[in-house]
Design a protein around this nucleic acid. Structure first.
Lengths: 207, 207, 207, 207
DNA sequence: CATGAATGAGTCTTCATTCAT
DNA sequence: GATGAATGAAGACTCATTCAT
């Protein structure tokens, strides 16, 4: 907690805000508390950010940027052959990303769900991810000389609601599952992979 | 809008609150606005409800009660034979229920996601529904003389994350999909069924 | 200080605000202090007024309304013959009005002087008064069979800068003259009348 | 805008402050904005001035000093014979001075009007000017062998309220007259001279 | 001289809730 | 049941001023 290190200070404000937003919700989170818990003066927050809203927007932008980076990297890493091993590798990349971002994802969901928010981050993020997915599926088919007959919209719907959403919901409710069903994160994650493999992945893998 | 009809008045307060909560979020929704839009005096709201929180609790209780009723009815309606037609019928019952409750579901998700909320409605609701599902699967297996070998926890995880969550997310984001991808509710619902059938349902149907 | 008498309460807020605005200026006056000194809860102020600005606007509107009333009454009272006695009577009506409104006039001047305020109250008030004056002069000339040859704009300028402004400035600085030159209000007022008679009034009276 | 020229920098801060104070009022003007618009770092302002108040005091002092200089010069320039031409020349000197100082005069009036300000600049300035005026009148009388019978206080009142105040008010409201009555500064100034000649000056000129 | 970062003390405004009728 | 008036406790945001370099 180096004072007079602007970059570090700004980062500390952001991560404290992220935590508080996810703990009590954006609206209930108090700027006073962010300041106190980040160990900075409240006015300093307004030196770096125009408003409480701008803090949230900054966090959302980072989320989207990180997602883009993650998608690029995941494409580079995974070979184009679609088989169970590859899917597992991809699953791991995604689950790691989503669990790392769980805090801000909770906030994103809570805010996106409000009918007042014009274009929600979740839609933006979703669009990004499912398009990447559909594209990689298309490429894989091409590579194998398979035709790629499917309706693109249908694929988008499938990727979004049965692919992405279970992942995000895993991030949202994993901790509650832990305490509600007395299950460890590791165990839950394994069950989740099994379930995901039998449902969404099964639809992708050649029968 | 019958004045001097307590039951109707209370219902009007509840439905107005539900709408406002879903539109702007529970925290941002003002009791003043609920009063104004319900056409009642603000103090009257406090005659019917202890607090703003109690309004939300009432709405959540109704949601849970309605879900229970829906589950009972769905069991009565559907025969025990598990085939595609039966699943489609069940799908329709669920989708209708979830779309009807989309407003309060949005609020439920937004609130459940906060780490401060001890036991979230979504977990309660989820537990209810996935247990019913698992139970009906068990019965179906029994009926057909099949053994029911699966790990129960695995089934719960599957029902929750790849069965229920896509449904709920459909309710949450259906309207945003409409405007983002210029697609009608009907069309989206059809795509969603196709996707759901190929993934979650496929895992249930005998190969 | 009757609680639960809305009219009286609102009036008390307004007069307290008027006093504080004139004492320390609109910007430095604190809503907290208005509340405290008016003996009401701060939130009650916002129950009656949208904002601090609206309080000021209400006060300004009252000032304009009162000025209109005063002008109507002054026309009714004074006969159309323009002689020294009539002018003295008119002077007294004006000086009484302006001294009664000195508090809000101070605020009005301070605010009007800001280049940001689009149309200032002082201009509005000035326009009202000088037009009434010019009109009454026109009538008087007509009555006496005199022609009314003067350029109207010139008259407006004269009424505003050498008629109205000395009056308003009297209201603004009377108290400071008292303490600076050790002179009583009565005495100062007499001097002021003499000066005003020799200058502005002299220009109106037949030579 | 020569950087690294302390004198010029300080002057730039002062003139920017003067402009902002007159545009939005002293209280609403922000040191941040003065810094930004003067193109200097905020902390530098505090290197040159103790406080925001000191900036204002500096501006007020300059105003008083400049007024003194102007008075001395005006005495030197104008001969002691009081006739219409001399008065017009004096009028021009005054109007030029007052128009040049309109910005800070607006601030001075706004601040002087507050009942909290112990001795206001306007009273100080007024005292300065009206004493000079009365003195020059006395000299002129003496010169012409006329007795100078008048009550001094009466003369002070007259000079202040019907002599100085119309001038200052001209500076305050000239721009608003322009836009309100669609009149040019030149035209308005001519009308003002006519009005001033018929009222205040007429009282001074031998009949 | 000059600057980016930091701070304390406000200041307006909001809002759930209650009171008196 | 119903209402207009009243309140306490906060909460977002501001701003003159100072510090460290």
């Amino acid at each position: 907690m180096n004072k007079r290190d602007p970059v570090e200070t700004k980062a500390r404000i952001l991560s404290t805000a992220e935590r508080l937003f996810s703990e009590v919700g954006f609206d209930k989170a108090r700027v006073d508390d962010i300041a106190k818990e980040a160990g900075v003066n409240k006015a300093l927050i307004y030196y770096y950010f125009e408003s409480k809203d701008e803090i949230l927007e900054t966090l959302f932008s980072s989320l989207v940027e990180d997602a883009k980076r993650m998608l690029v990297e995941s494409v580079e890493k995974t070979s184009d052959v679609l088989n169970e091993d590859n899917y597992k590798a991809l699953f791991d990349v995604y689950i790691r990303f989503i669990m790392e971002k769980r805090k801000i994802l909770k906030v994103a969901i809570a805010e996106s769900v409000k009918e007042s928010s014009s274009i929600s981050v979740v839609m933006e993020l979703g669009n990004l991810i499912i398009n990447a997915e559909v594209e990689s599926i298309r490429k894989a088919c091409e590579l194998k000389g398979l035709d790629y007959p499917e309706d693109k919209k249908e694929m988008l719907v499938m990727e979004f609601f049965t692919g992405l959403m279970p992942f995000i919901c895993f991030a949202l409710f994993e901790d509650q599952w832990e305490s509600y069903y007395h299950i460890s994160e590791k165990e839950l994650c394994e069950y989740f992979y099994k379930a995901f493999r039998k449902t969404h992945l099964a639809a992708h893998l050649p029968k």
